[in-house]
Structure formats: structure tokens, C-alpha cells
């Protein structure tokens, strides 16, 4: 085998590896270029599948935290969400503080909704219209829970072919707007350090409540 052939084989395998990586990294998720609804649906369907498994086989050891963590990073643009929530206060922060705030705020949101996800009881998600305006999109979904339909719309933003969620609208209430009004009202009187402290207190409260719920569930 000549030297040239060897290097061609090497080159080919590098290219093959690169293609494989591109295909494999989104891990079963819709490939880049799919519509916002398709991408969102693939994320939600994956979490619903895990929840159904959990429901069927009691004691199934699914690491919900890890899964939620992964989907959260994969599908949410927390940087953008936080920027919108902080509004004009974002501008006054340096990069370090911005990063700290994004991480802490993401922790709070996760600690809040993971408790809710654990209470899953066969809710069904149906997908409605999607609206795309340039690099922004809105996907309408409906959650059917106890015979009640809860409208839940996702606002998404396009980054490198992937659609990331940056706002959730539950029954006409935008999460971003709601947090922005709270942050505004808080920061009128106190500083960003106090707000970070408050977020950390909330996270600790949520985690304590979750531990308590789990202990009760194990006893009962």
C-alpha cells in the first residue's frame, strides 16, 4: 500500500468520523433544519416516553435529573431568556455576573419544574400551529390534564439550524414577562447581589420540598 493510499484512507476516515459526529451529537434529536415544531416535539416526546416508563414500572431507575438537565441545555437558550428577563439591568452587569445569574436562574427554573414533572400522571401533549418570523418562531401546544386543556406556547429562536426555547406562555402568561416584572420590582429597591441571594434561597427551598415529597412517597 502506497503512502498516498494510506493518507487517503486516513482522510476518508476523518471525514467519516466528522459526518458521524454531526449525525450522532444531536442524539436522536431532529436534525438541523427541521421545523421548530419538529425539533420541539422530538424533545418533548423523549421526556414523555421516559415519564411513561417511570409510571408503568414503579421503582424504575431513571435518572430524571440528568435527562432533564440534558434536554434543558439542548433545547433552552437560557442566556437569551435571562437577558430578556433582566431587561435594562442586564446591560449593567459584567460577563462574570451575567454568567453567574444565568446559571442560578436556570437552577431555579429546573428546581421548580422537575417537581412538577415527577407528578406526571398520563398527561398528553398535542401540537398546534407554528408561526415563523425570520429567526423567531412560536409553537402552540396543548396539554390535556384531568379533562382540562392547558394551552402552552413556546417561543423559539434559531441558532445554527437549531431552534431553542427562550420563553414559555402558559395560559396567556409569558414566563419572561412575569419574571421581568418581578426582577424589575425587586431591583428598584435592592441590588443584583440581593437578587442572586434570593434566587439561591428559593432553590434551597424547592430542593428541600422535593426531598420531603420523595420521603413521603417512599413511606406511602
Amino acid at each position: 500500500m502506497g503512502k498516498q493510499t494510506k493518507s487517503i484512507i486516513f482522510l476518508l476516515s476523518v471525514v467519516l468520523l466528522a459526518i458521524l459526529l454531526v449525525v450522532v451529537v444531536p442524539a436522536g434529536d431532529a436534525v438541523a433544519g427541521a421545523s421548530p415544531r419538529e425539533q420541539l416535539q422530538s424533545s418533548i416526546d423523549r421526556i414523555l416516553e421516559v415519564l411513561r416508563q417511570r409510571q408503568q414500572e414503579a421503582g424504575a431507575t431513571v435518572d430524571l435529573d440528568a435527562l432533564a438537565d440534558r434536554l434543558f441545555h439542548e433545547r433552552f437558550d437560557m442566556d437569551y431568556t435571562t437577558r430578556l428577563c433582566l431587561g435594562r439591568y442586564w446591560r449593567d452587569l459584567d460577563d462574570g455576573k451575567r454568567g453567574e445569574f444565568v446559571t442560578t436562574f436556570a437552577e431555579l427554573l429546573k428546581s421548580t419544574y422537575i417537581g412538577r414533572v415527577e407528578e406526571y400522571s398520563g398527561e398528553v401533549v398535542s401540537y398546534g400551529r407554528e408561526r415563523i418570523e425570520g429567526e423567531k418562531a412560536m409553537v402552540e401546544t396543548v396539554i390535556v390534564s384531568k379533562g382540562v386543556e392547558i394551552p402552552l406556547d413556546y417561543k423559539m429562536v434559531l441558532r445554527d439550524g437549531y431552534w431553542y426555547v427562550y420563553d414559555v406562555i402558559i395560559e396567556e402568561v409569558s414566563l419572561v414577562r412575569n419574571y421581568r416584572s418581578q426582577f424589575n420590582s425587586f431591583l428598584e429597591k435592592q441590588g443584583i447581589a440581593d437578587l442572586l441571594q434570593r434566587l439561591r434561597e428559593k432553590i434551597a427551598e424547592n430542593e428541600a420540598a422535593r426531598r420531603k415529597n420523595r420521603a413521603e412517597a417512599q413511606q406511602g
Partner: peptide, 10 residues
């Protein structure tokens, strides 16, 4: 209540 930092404002 769990999710927010100021329930009244929220």
C-alpha cells in the same frame, strides 16, 4: 409560589 421570587408581583 414555588417558582417565583415575589408571589404578589408574579
Amino acid at each position: 409560589i414555588r417558582a417565583v421570587i415575589d408571589p404578589y408581583v408574579a
